[in-house]
Write a protein that binds this DNA or RNA. Structure first.
Lengths: 349, 349
DNA sequence: GTTAGCACTCTTGGCAAATGAGTGCTAACA
DNA sequence: TGTTAGCACTCATTTGCCAAGAGTGCTAAC
């Protein structure tokens, strides 16, 4: 059933007010708003209807109305209009995000902290899972009599390395040969391909000559590849939660912080999210702990391929349009910075 | 003025009880303890004396006594006896700490998380500031036509690298020459020496031939050296604070978490701490936010040289002897693991 | 020096009354 | 037929008050 123009207006006003005050909003308060020229009684009637339809709830008989998750959903889908950021906000974001493509981890961390600062919510970001990152170059370097450094470079410019204690002596020639061989075998493969298809069989022949070397090497090679797949999680503004009246109850705040402190779970949750801007409201979240939180996430990409996520978490009572606009602008900026042609930056306006 | 045997006994009992219950302890409760065979009245007299001397306080007239920071200090210095860990605890710690010298960061992270688990407090650890780590090896590797990887290896086995976009073309020969030259110039220098004495003048002659190369390189070299000095901070068990009755007040918990979330400050604070086991109680801490917290930290070292810190933070009402023993045993274990001869492990008992 | 006794203080919990915000419903009005 | 005023009713919150209980300080007796 479609809601009448007036119902939508009232619902919108209730949401607006409740988001600001965190107090159930009553008919009197609403009737005072200039855009709603109705008497409290009329509004009460409409509110009763809206409640029946599931858009409002009632903490108790003599309290005002509170928007339900369904109301927020409607609001987000249909009612809210995108908020254009002010010139200052845009400038602030752009200025704080100037970064180096080769230090994108730092840039992401900055972005998360900026996001939490602007929204006054808890923000988080993950770096891309580089599953599809392509290997470019593998090198073994001598350090000690018994130490060798394994170094793996990917197309995206990521460099990982690891010092390996060798159990058998090696020669520089051997290392060079092995480096070449490995590069030859793995170059062009994605990290996940390299991890699954065990290409070792492929260079068995050469290896015979170097016996123990490969045995020391391969487990470390695999470990390093796994390291490269590691996703980093950044989180900022955890204590912003304390500014939100809903969480002035210690046990609630505790739950919130406890959940967010579980890095693996949060990372997984973020990875699983769809790309683009995604809003999930209250009970739309599967986790019990998130039943009265909303998440807004967006994806950013590096050179248009590797995809990371950034977003905020807060109470369902949140300034959806504002936060969404901020995140959108922020990710646009990130995408721009991370375009490998090298972070040019001329945006709209 | 020295306290009488009996006063010490009473004080000790008060501390013991208060640490357990977090409730002010009264004379009746104390007189019931078998080791204190005095009537409530006697104990009251002694308590009045102790209060006058500053060892006890009184939340209000009709409440029991609470130990002051001065009392805890006395307790820690003179009264408490070291608690020997149980065989199980020792086993647990030893088992969980088996680590690889080359992955000491992970080991430290584990140690912090273990510490917080055992003590039910918030724990943290910092990796050593590698100021005195000695450079061993510098290498420049070609990747692209315009990308070069700079790699720095230190004696402690740390490997740092950085991809550098070159603004001028290079040849492999040039890179090799430069690598050799830099290694020659920096090998044996500590990181801080390398950062301060600008040795660039030293190889000016060769550089002339490679003009732009060094200009692209040197800023990145310096940045990478700075990266190597970065200290990582690990923190675990933040939410343990919520189990402590003193922090059931939201604003207190908030302050606590806010302070601990400031990574730079916490890192600095830890770096500044003295080596060995250090206990600072309540107002002995300079920071306002720590006035009712105690910190217990200890230092661990890698190969007996590079020194990191690990510790816990909790309310002044803390099981000092237990926590101290745990930290001591833990750092012994860490030191052992990080002895470069390669983590042998046979401990006392 | 130790202890029993007692008056006194102060916190805590429970209870009841007052307050007030807001509703739902009915009846009147345009 | 839609809108509004009026009024009784509900329920959370605040306030004040009282009783109970824990613990002290002091005095006097042992």
């Amino acid at each position: 059933m479609d809601l009448s123009e007036r119902k939508l207006k009232i619902l919108s006003a209730i949401i607006g007010d409740y988001v600001k005050t965190a107090e159930p909003v009553g008919s009197r308060t609403l009737s005072k708003k200039p855009e709603l020229g109705y008497s409290p009684a009329t509004i009460r009637n409409e509110m009763a209807d809206l409640e029946e339809l599931g858009y409002l709830t009632h903490p108790h008989t003599s309290a005002g109305r509170v928007p339900s998750d369904k109301a927020y959903r409607l609001y987000v889908n249909a009612l809210m209009d995108k908020k254009e950021l002010s010139r200052e906000e845009k400038k602030l974001i752009a200025a704080r995000l100037r970064g180096d493509v080769n230090e994108f981890e730092k840039t992401i961390e900055h972005a998360a902290s900026l996001l939490s600062e602007i929204t006054n919510l808890t923000s988080f970001a993950i770096t891309p899972k580089q599953t599809d990152d392509v290997l470019k170059y593998i090198n073994l370097l001598p350090v000690d009599e018994d130490t060798v450094i394994l170094m793996i470079v990917s197309e995206s410019g990521k460099v990982n390395n690891r010092a390996i204690k060798m159990s058998v002596p090696y020669t520089e020639e051997n290392l060079k040969l092995l480096s070449k061989n490995m590069t030859y075998n793995y170059k062009g493969k994605t990290i996940s391909q390299a991890l699954t298809n065990n290409i070792i069989a492929n260079f068995e022949t050469d290896i015979i000559a170097m016996s123990g070397l490969a045995e020391d090497l391969m487990p470390n090679f695999m470990k390093t590849l796994e390291d490269m797949l590691n996703v980093n999680l950044y989180m900022e503004g955890l204590t912003n939660i304390f500014d939100i009246p809903e969480y002035s109850d210690v046990s609630k705040a505790r739950h919130f912080i406890e959940m967010l402190s579980k890095k693996e779970e949060m990372t997984r949750k973020l990875i699983e999210r769809e790309e683009g801007i995604t809003i999930s409201i209250g009970e739309e979240n599967s986790e019990d702990e998130l039943q009265d939180c909303s998440l807004i996430t967006a994806s950013y990409s590096i050179d248009g391929r590797l995809v990371g996520k950034i977003g905020v978490i807060g109470p369902t009572r949140m300034k959806y349009e504002e936060v969404t606009s901020i995140i959108e602008y922020l990710t646009d900026n990130l995408n721009n910075t991370f375009r490998l042609e090298s972070g040019g930056k001329e945006e709209d306006e």
